[in-house]
């Protein structure tokens, strides 16, 4: 499938102030490319959730947006720490977020399930000590 656009955003760990800037930019770029409505909202929410996860839980990483003719793809990859129990992590309400994240209104344990719900395709691969890669695809009708 022909790739129309690609951009990668580095995301810093524990940088709570700038968290969300990549997603804000992603949403604006997609809007400029003519993506709108329900798909744009779902990409924006999933992107914000995954970006916050990078900031809150991981040791930093990057978020890559690729736009194809018929789909939008978001890939988040980080350098650790990895998720020990994926089925627990995917459960609503389960969270290991710290106090700082909670004080900002996050850490309710909704992030991963919400990404899965918003994406048309969701894949998560994780290895403790190595890192986590989350791939989400959104179909453009």
């Amino acid at each position: 499938m022909e790739e129309l656009f690609r951009i990668t955003y580095p995301v810093k760990a524990a940088d709570y102030v700038t968290a969300g800037q990549a997603s804000t930019d992603i949403k604006r770029k997609l809007k400029q490319l003519g993506v709108g409505g329900d798909v744009l909202r779902r990409v924006a929410v999933a992107s914000y959730e995954v970006e916050l996860n990078l900031v809150i839980h991981y040791l930093g990483g990057e978020l890559c947006l690729t736009v194809f003719e018929d789909a939008v793809q978001l890939v988040s990859s980080d350098v650790g720490p990895g998720i020990a129990d994926l089925s627990m992590a995917m459960r609503e309400g389960f969270s290991t977020a710290n106090e700082e994240a909670r004080s900002l209104g996050f850490g309710a344990g909704m992030g991963l399930p919400n990404m899965k719900r918003n994406a048309d395709e969701f894949d998560i691969q994780s290895e403790v000590g190595k890192g986590t890669t989350i791939t989400m695809r959104f179909r453009l009708s």
Partner: peptide, 9 residues
């Protein structure tokens, strides 16, 4: 809500 996680979900 004061819980943005829930608002997003």
């Amino acid at each position: 809500s004061d819980l943005m996680s829930d608002v997003l979900a």
